[in-house]
């Protein structure tokens, strides 16, 4: 029995992903031969990372649901914080996981997904609170945080609230086509040929021209918002 994710229709056009899964009634199911989203199965799953690198965010939702109650219990025993803070930290951790996989910085798991997510979420909470309860035992997450410098980069720096609002407003004014192209190129780090194949552009030149126009428009919007 596989783990099921509901995917939007347009994801069904992705041919590479379809080799790893089979579809029925808009439900994407990991085939029994593929690792499952269990407590341990996901940890070695290159397919999960590949799904995320292709932007299949429904996989994220399953990760988010699967470990969320456990994270709340675990973090609640360690840090004095409210549920909204834990929710924020958990969402940030899940997004960081997605971002790392999407940008191909995370190509294999040194830890299982749970450890990775808990470590990042925990760092986020520590960064906010810096007030921990007495911890009488250490677990694999403490070990990962101490040993691996990769977790030191979380949480990353974010632009200020005003700049964030300006950047988001600029993106909202872009066409859907431009937003998709920019997402594929600058978030999912796809190459020009990959995007050409995905969106059926006649040539890489045609795609490059479209991408250049989108970039130019976005930069104009940045300047407009900044009042330059």
């Amino acid at each position: 029995m596989g783990v099921r994710f509901t995917l939007p229709d347009h994801y069904y056009a992705t041919t590479r992903w379809s080799k790893a899964v089979y579809y029925s009634n808009n439900i994407l199911t990991f085939s029994p031969n593929y690792p499952k989203l269990g407590n341990t199965g996901l940890t070695d799953s290159a397919e999960i990372l590949r799904a995320l690198s292709e932007g299949h965010t429904q996989v994220l939702q399953s990760l988010y649901e699967q470990h969320r109650p456990d994270f709340f219990r675990w973090a609640g025993r360690r840090i004095e914080c409210g549920r909204p803070e834990m929710e924020d930290a958990w969402q940030e951790a899940v997004f960081a996981f997605y971002e790392q996989a999407a940008s191909r910085k995370l190509t294999a798991f040194r830890y299982n997904a749970r450890t990775w997510l808990f470590a990042v979420g925990y760092r986020k909470l520590l960064n906010q609170r810096r007030k921990t309860k007495w911890i009488f035992w250490k677990d694999e997450i403490d070990d990962a945080l101490v040993r691996d410098p990769v977790f030191q980069q979380f949480p990353g720096e974010e632009p200020g609230a005003e700049e964030q609002a300006s950047l988001l407003a600029s993106m909202e004014e872009m066409s859907t086509q431009c937003r998709n192209l920019l997402r594929q190129r600058f978030f999912l780090e796809k190459s020009i040929p990959e995007i050409q194949q995905l969106y059926d552009y006649q040539s890489t030149n045609a795609l490059s021209v479209s991408l250049s126009r989108c970039l130019k428009r976005l930069k104009e919007l940045f300047r407009e918002k900044a009042g330059i």
Binding site: Y64, Q91, Y98, L167, L168, M171, R183
Partner: peptide, 17 residues
């Protein structure tokens, strides 16, 4: 550009989560 694209993706994902 990268920040804007990332922020929009983050906003969508976090809203859904």
């Amino acid at each position: 550009v990268r920040q804007a694209v990332r922020l929009r993706e983050k906003k969508e994902v976090l809203e859904r989560l």
